[in-house]
């Protein structure tokens, strides 16, 4: 059975609905008020992923770097908008631009390095590598940045008096807020760093599982996974630091005053 894989057919997918039927049955049994949502979720998963399959097939057929770059830019804008709308309860001025800009820099550096020097893709915009990796960088970067920014706002709220005390002594905003910045980045990176400690011991990461399922030699799958783990941590670090370096300034006036009105929940 070497280097073979079991192609799953549409009939097989229909059979997999049995799994959902089991979930439904259990929820009905305990009268948990989730049936409708679960039904919508089941349908959306099916429709969204099927559509995505066709879309990806179409994208992968494109042999045009402008199209690929445009697609990545599109993904960045959508992700930045998603991050921006998650931050509605605590609006930060220019947050959309901050996210989009930080993602652009991170994607350019990390994706460029991977495509050029690790995978040596030919052509450089080889869609089978570029689209999924860009997706991982953007998605992971967004999640990590959201965590950091939330933590950062909690930190400023918590340290408001300390920050104002430091400002009143003549501290520049950067110095007054340094501990809050460090704590926030550290807190957001911890899950990523912890994942590096337990990867492969507790569970196999999704990408690796997928590759092995589709018949790829585990040793190759492992090499991909090692690269992805490093990529995740670096992406998260880069995103967090870029985003916070831009975000913290929004909390101060040019007169080195803390904008306390931004701390209160809208």
């Amino acid at each position: 059975m070497e280097n073979s894989f079991y192609a799953i057919t549409w009939t097989d997918v229909l059979v997999s609905l049995v799994l959902m039927v089991m979930a439904f049955a259990l929820i009905r049994w305990w009268k948990i008020d989730l049936g409708k949502t679960l039904l919508i979720g089941t349908i959306r998963t099916f429709v969204q992923l099927t559509l995505m399959g066709y879309v990806l097939t179409y994208f992968f057929r494109q042999d045009n770097w402008i199209f690929m770059v445009g697609l990545v830019l599109m993904m960045i804008l959508i992700a930045a908008y998603e991050g921006y709308s998650r931050q509605r309860s605590h609006p930060i001025p220019n947050y959309f631009l901050i996210l989009a800009g930080s993602m652009l820099i991170t994607v350019f550096l990390v994706l460029g390095l991977i495509l050029q020097f690790i995978l040596h893709t030919q052509p450089w915009y080889y869609p089978y590598a570029m689209i999924p990796i860009a997706g991982m960088i953007i998605g992971n970067g967004l999640n990590s940045a959201t965590l950091t920014v939330n933590r950062f706002i909690a930190e400023i709220n918590h340290r408001e008096k300390e920050i104002e005390m430091l400002l009143s002594l003549g501290a520049p905003p950067r110095a007054a807020i340094q501990d809050a910045l460090r704590e926030s980045v550290k807190a957001a990176l911890l899950p990523n760093v912890n994942a590096m400690m337990t990867v492969g011991l507790v569970q196999l990461p999704g990408v690796m599982t997928g590759q092995i399922l589709s018949g790829i030699d585990p040793l190759i799958a492992v090499r991909y996974q090692i690269m992805i783990m490093y990529m995740w941590v670096t992406t998260a670090t880069m995103m967090n630091i870029l985003v916070l370096a831009l975000v913290y300034r929004r909390f101060f006036t040019p007169q080195w005053q803390l904008k306390r009105e931004l701390l209160r929940v809208k």
Binding site: K161, E164, M165, L167, S168, L169, G170, P172, W256
Partner: peptide, 11 residues
């Protein structure tokens, strides 16, 4: 910075 050095504050 100069102003805040000259004008100290105790909270």
């Amino acid at each position: 910075r100069l102003l805040r050095q000259q004008v100290g504050m105790v909270f």
